[in-house]
Design a protein around this nucleic acid. Structure first.
Lengths: 121, 121
DNA sequence: TTAACCCTTAGAGTAAACTCTAAGTCAACC
DNA sequence: GGTTGACTTAGAGTTTACTCTAAGGGTTAA
């Protein structure tokens, strides 16, 4: 009976390729990944929670550099909570602006589509 | 009195570097740019209108490949209006989905920030 | 015991979208 | 008339985020 999550299973669970997972460890986005006696990585549910958060930050458009910074702060413990909060707040502002801009673009492009429709009508 | 818009002025007006403008011409996003007797580009207000539209598509997240496709269709004239409309419609769907996803991320991240705030409180 | 298939690493390759460099032309100012 | 500075081209270099390859070791199924 399989007790730990190997890279393949982690890949399936997170929907990231094993290449990407190793890459994330190499650049410091994933930290302290445990190894078994043969040097193979094994992952925990904590790792899954963290990577899900990383994926959220990525989908929000945060670059890996920033995510790595967040990971570094997280590693340093409770004392960095305020800094992490600020990082998130900064990105909230960026994202709010982006959503507003995208909504405007959407409006304009829909107007253009209406124009094309009037050509045909 | 300056009658035409050279690359420097076009760069200022569009907020794109002259490198980027030449690059856009090279890949076919900008087409039929006029030249003077010494081979220097000069631009028209039509070019400015077009590049503003290109910038909108870019900010909507449309890749340059797709924008080039749109430019190709535009070059072919009125008969491609329907295809161009479809290209835009497809991107509207993508953008609407993205905005919805971003709004969800925003909500989740704000929850996380509240969590940090309760740590301090 | 040997094949099949997992894992490991370092490092090379890829794609998108620029960004810059080198080498050269040309018009304008002092 | 020489130098400055903007323009031209082809093509090399950069950044981000992967994605893949090569070379090799470990574990399990027939």
């Amino acid at each position: 009976m399989e007790v730990f999550i190997n890279i393949q299973r982690f890949s399936t669970l997170t929907n990231l390729s094993s290449h990407t997972i190793r890459y994330y460890e190499k650049i410091g986005v994933l930290k302290h990944i445990a190894r078994n006696s043969s040097g193979h990585r094994f992952f925990t549910t904590k790792d899954i929670e963290w990577i899900e958060f990383v994926k959220r930050l990525k989908e929000m458009g945060m670059p890996l550099d920033n995510i790595k910074l967040y990971a570094d702060l997280r590693e340093q413990g409770e004392s960095t909570a305020e800094q992490r909060k600020q990082l998130l707040q900064e990105h909230v502002v960026i994202l709010e602006e982006r959503i507003a801009l995208e909504a405007l673009h959407l409006k304009k492009i829909k107007e253009k589509i209406l124009y094309y429709e009037n050509l045909n009508g």
